[in-house]
Amino acid sequence: MILKEKVALVTGASRGIGKAIALELAREGASVIVNYSGNKSRAEETASAIEALGAEALPYQCDVSNEADVQEMVKTAVKKFGHLDIVVNNAGITRDGLLMRMKEADWDAVLNTNLKGVFLVTKAALRPMIRQKQGKIINIASVVGILGNASQANYAAAKAGVIGLTKASAREMASKGITVNAVAPGFIVTDMTDELPEEVKEKMQNDIPLGRPGTPEDVAKVVRFLASEDSGYMTGQILNVDGGMAMQ
């Protein structure tokens, strides 16, 4: 177990990639704050699964785009567990549509959750991490933030923003022993991609050199690496977990 005694906050951990990340970190011994937005029962399922692995879990409802609530969440976590070592900014939504028809509300919703949320959670977590003089922040970006995607102007902009934010915060915090890296998943099988029309799914799959969509666990394993000391000499990096969709 490589994350014994560590405390991790995973946003959007009730389902999909966030859930797989929460379980992966718990399997390595970390206590996990299971953040979610509305899906209490799914968050509790994640928490029970974590406890079944012998680790501690705290389900916590909080909209990551609300600063006061985010501050409260981090305070509660630190109070309960004593410290905060790992933050995974995973919560995210899509509101797809052609740019020409995209409603301002759909732009705002995606930017608020996917980009501002990362800023607010990072800002709150830096306090305890600076105190501890160590911390690992892992942001979940997307291949779409690198390649762009028709019908996802809002999402692509937010994810490209996450990549910039990752690099800026990595530079800012490096001298304090805090590393900030991102993972850019490709096409991963979750509720988010389940909504896509069949022909879009088929087309995306044809674009994947490794010939299959990814699983949440594919992403979680790379996050585990970034959360561990094995990646101690890495910061400001974007790791693609996309079956080869974008090669840099």
Binding site: R127, I130, R131, E172, S175, K176
Partner: peptide, 13 residues
Amino acid sequence: SLDIVELVMELED
């Protein structure tokens, strides 16, 4: 400025 942020946190403690 980051040193000052850190300093302020320590003073708070």
